[in-house]
Design a protein around this nucleic acid. Structure first.
Lengths: 218, 218
DNA sequence: GACTTGGTGGTATGGTTGTACCACAAAAAT
DNA sequence: ATTTTTGTGGTACAACCATACCACCAAGTC
């Protein structure tokens, strides 16, 4: 047993334990002990693979960011090679609303990190802004492409619309996390808004009233 | 000195100290001691006016919610008695993006509470959803009024648009909190989106490209 | 076979936290 | 004048935290 061990695997295992703990008791409740228990190892081991708690938290954040990026790219790839901008945009934005359980965990913990980063200097310089900024540029590209293809109103300001899209998906994702809205309602709202941006695409043109009342959680 | 004391005043004083601490070191760093120091009183006093830490946190949250409501109502009142729906909607939504320092403090701490409430059972049943739901209904009312007045496209789904508005303001507010966007950029984006919802109102019709690049923070 | 190195468990330690407890001063009530 | 009641300070305590330290075991190296 105490032979040579795959460090990366062990680290991933421990980090996953951390994410689970953070997801159901809060990031503030993450301690060396709770992570060790959840991972089924001794505290000493957690210490061994991540020298200090701060490094553990940082490593977990990094892994989180990587996985998020993977999920987005995977989702875009799943739409097929040469899809219309509208579908690509939809795929990207839909990743921001928690669907499956893994996604919910990721977004919850990521949000906890983001809020923490406002006050914690150790997380502050950790670049939370790179990903959203990159996403913004990407969306601007898709929107201008759509404009040139005649799929959307050329008089729109692509950058502003991109920011709006990002904001609405973040806001919807947050409201789902907080239990204010169901996942499917959030998805419906997002699709509605996209329907308004890209008129004449898909089943809904986004201009008719939706038949079903937009139910809230009880 | 140890005469009769205005309890509410003292409690408010201590809660304000808590909000200050939470705003610049994080809600997780709020301890009986730090609050006492910030308020310039002894720990015993904090214990005296709020029996337990949990009650202190709950009281602070309540005060926060009350102040938020006041600010929104105040802002709406400031637009004048019989203003157009667009301006009322704008006023309400602008309150969600941190402008002055007090607003920033409120939103940061409120967001910290909201995120905490996802995992903390003590905050869970604390109704975080009442205010947003109320706001949603209010917005729906304003939008349908605008539709009947011919200020906005009658084919739009008022409820969905209201949800989008709420989401975009929440998302923008969050991005300002995280330092991704400046306050004025967020305000500009919000105004842009309103311009698209209410065509032909105000200086910008929301269809022209904005001349200035939408600068990000460095 | 001696010995270094990587991996692991257990435990000690110094610090922090929420809270309970004790003492005491001054006003109010009797 | 004495006895409550109200407000306040200080301090003690049990729990928990991150981390440092010590012992040990097994594989690979010489």
């Amino acid at each position: 047993m105490p032979k040579l061990v795959d460090h990366e695997e062990r680290r991933a295992h421990i980090i996953d334990a951390l994410l689970r703990v953070a997801a159901d008791t809060g990031l503030h409740a993450v301690t060396m002990r709770s992570v060790a228990v959840e991972a089924g190892v001794s505290v000493r081991l957690v210490q061994y693979y991540f020298d200090t708690k701060e490094q553990l938290l940082l490593a977990a954040l990094t892994r989180l960011a990587v996985r998020m990026g993977e999920r987005v790219r995977e989702r875009v790839r799943a739409t097929g090679p040469s899809t219309a901008p509208r579908d690509i945009v939809e795929a990207v934005l839909l990743e921001a609303v928690p669907t499956d359980e893994e996604s919910r965990t990721f977004h919850l913990v990521y949000t906890e990190y983001a809020v923490l980063s406002v006050t914690d200097p150790a997380l502050a310089d950790q670049s939370f802004l790179a990903a959203p900024n990159e996403m913004e540029d990407f969306l601007v590209g898709q929107l201008t492409a759509a404009q040139q293809a005649g799929d959307t109103d050329p008089r729109l300001d692509a950058r502003q619309e991109a920011v709006v899209l990002l904001a609405v998906s973040a806001g919807l994702g947050l409201s789902v996390l907080l239990g204010q809205r169901t996942t499917s309602d959030a998805v419906a709202v997002l699709r509605y808004h996209l329907g308004r941006l890209f008129p004449g695409s898909g089943a809904s043109d986004g201009c008719g009233k939706s038949g079903h009342a937009n139910q809230r959680r009880p």
